[in-house]
């Protein structure tokens, strides 16, 4: 879906991207990195919004330099910064964006209304985009990125400025794009739990260099497995039972118990609860693994946050 070969981008003496090479298959891909890592620059270079200093790239099999326009025909982009075309109502704006991608007015208008429904915009679509709140603008940005039915969509911090309900809605939608519509998603976000929730693959970059690129489940398995247990009561008895079973239990300040797990399976914990008649508990395998992985990747490569 995306092939990048030794791509570099320099602004004067500062290198925003440094020899990045990638082969990304279709799917939901999380793009992680500290501030100024080069995430947005990578996306902009792939869209030809910035010209790479060196290197080549293909998006959906089309060379971005050789076929500048056609490389973006089936690509959607929701930028991080507030972007909109002024003086238009929401539905008019999204329709216009569809036309700019080559849809007829009728097709674009129909898709615009469907997509605006999808992103959760009601009557606000008939108001001028200039009067929208941050959350509304975020939804409008997502709608314009999806109106022309792209095969891949780049989302740069798509949940910025959304209230919790709106964020949940957009995350559910973005997560479903690949699963239900086969639209590949490249999502750049600082919120690791969002990436972990909706993506099956992760790319970590820092200081313009690619640090990690793999499936999240593969990366999880490479790290030590841990389990967090939140018992509904009898915390001490729970901890004793786990210790007696041979686990090293760490009590967390939030009332949870953390222990290293010998395998992916949690069957042995369920068995322990049954035999010791322990109260029910919430069991989460490998919590915060992406967070740990992110920090570890940065420190292994000598990068500080």
């Amino acid at each position: 879906m995306i092939e990048v070969e030794k791509m570099s981008k320099a602004y004067g003496t500062q290198r925003a991207l440094n020899d990045v090479s990638l082969q990304v298959p279709p799917g939901a891909i999380g793009l992680l990195g500290p501030n100024g890592a080069g995430k947005t620059t990578l996306i902009k270079c792939l869209l030809n919004l910035e010209s790479p200093t060196s290197g080549t790239a293909k998006v959906l099999g089309v060379d971005i330099k050789v076929s500048n326009r056609s490389s973006r025909e089936k690509v959607g982009y929701s930028p991080e910064r507030d972007c909109h075309i002024p003086g238009m109502a929401g539905c008019e704006y999204v329709t216009y964006c569809g036309q700019l991608s080559g849809m007829t007015f009728r097709q674009a208008r129909q898709r615009a209304h469907e997509i605006l429904d999808l992103v959760g915009m009601g009557q606000e679509r008939y108001r001028s985009v200039d009067t929208y709140s941050t959350g509304m603008r975020q939804r409008a940005k997502l709608a314009q990125a999806l109106v022309h039915d792209p095969k891949i969509v780049f989302l740069d911090e798509p949940t910025n400025g959304l209230d919790p309900a709106g964020r949940e809605h957009i995350l559910t939608l973005v997560g479903s794009l690949w699963r239900e519509l086969n639209i590949s998603v490249v999502i750049s976000s600082h919120l690791l739990q969002d990436i972990e929730r909706i993506c099956d693959r992760v790319i970590i970059i820092a200081h313009g260099r690619l640090l990690v690129h793999d499936r999240i489940d593969v990366l999880k398995n490479q790290r030590r497995r841990s389990v967090e247990i939140t018992p509904s009561g009898e915390l001490d008895r729970f901890a004793s039972a786990l210790t007696a079973a041979g686990s090293t239990v760490e009590r967390l300040s939030n009332g949870r118990l953390r222990l290293e797990a010998p395998s992916e399976s949690i069957e042995w914990i369920l068995e322990l609860i049954r035999t010791n008649r322990l109260p029910p508990a919430e069991i989460v395998g490998n919590p915060n693994v992406l967070h740990e992985l992110f920090l570890a990747s940065l420190s292994e490569n000598g990068n500080d946050l």
Binding site: L49, R69, R72, Y77, P79, H84, I85, P86, G87, Q144
Partner: peptide, 25 residues
């Protein structure tokens, strides 16, 4: 002001150029 000024103020160029269009278009 509606030609380019307002587009620059609202970063609309990004919206145009992220589509199959160039700055010449």
């Amino acid at each position: 002001p509606r030609l380019i000024t307002q587009d620059r103020a609202s970063n609309a160029l990004t919206i145009y150029l992220a589509r199959p269009l160039t700055s010449a278009d």
